[in-house]
Design a protein around this nucleic acid. Structure first.
Lengths: 120, 120
DNA sequence: ATTAAACTGAACCATATGGTTCAGTATGAG
DNA sequence: CTCATACTGAACCATATGGTTCAGTTTAAT
């Protein structure tokens, strides 16, 4: 089984746990943007937006590059892969458990049907 | 496009951003457990573990039920689905952009090859 | 009836987070 | 050269987070 970089997972999930930052990612999904663009879009101070971008960059979810006096922000490659991998693996655990659960549910439904008939 | 419950996404991602809580989920993937079980496993006070479980439960990632004096914890259904859906949709944005990027990269490689030949 | 186990809630603590303002620095335009 | 733009860093603030201890309460076992 793959070994995950827990610190990186911490940073990535934390970065994703804020509605503004998810918004920024969505925005960058449409087009690259400067800090000013993003600050305007989300009605926030430049400094505030800079911090959000910093968090996203730390998590590898965006990449930025300073060109002249403007910092260009774009989606990063590195970030989401491990997160998606973790979710995926976790989903498997989940399914394994719910397979069992599904059977129980089916069993219950079958019984209900019978009970229903009896009550009629 | 699906509209996401942002508050719930906040809670879920935040819940997942802690290594102990991810560990708890993994543990519950193997078997249901009591608060005491989990506290022992992660070498933490009962109260501390209770808080973690509370966070996970709030996010719908676990379900608990008090049976006698012990609280039984198990994986929840409700939680991961929206998270997985968000990641999935986001992945699509990503791919769309990287498709374009790939083309650019290919283009650059092609040019480099030519330049390389010229320099020789 | 006693006692131990398992949890729960309140209070506390240190640090992190999400925001702000203010005072810079660096760069592009005229 | 001058000035506005775009960012950056420091300091601050309120609230949240991850943990603890201590003092209950409820339930199970003897």
């Amino acid at each position: 089984m793959v070994q995950f970089n827990q610190a990186h997972l911490d940073a990535s999930f934390a970065a994703l746990s804020d509605v503004t930052r998810r918004g920024v990612l969505e925005q960058l999904g449409r087009a690259d943007a400067s800090i000013t663009d993003l600050a305007d879009r989300f009605e926030m101070s430049l400094t505030g937006m800079k911090k959000h971008v910093g968090v996203l960059e730390q998590a590898g979810l965006v990449i930025t590059e300073k060109v002249g006096r403007v910092r260009n922000c774009k989606l990063g490659v590195r970030g989401l892969q491990e997160v998606a991998a973790w979710i995926e693996r976790y989903h498997q655990l989940w399914d394994a458990r719910f397979c069992a659960l599904d059977q129980i549910v089916e069993e219950l439904k079958r019984k209900e049907k019978i009970d229903g008939r009896k009550k009629k």
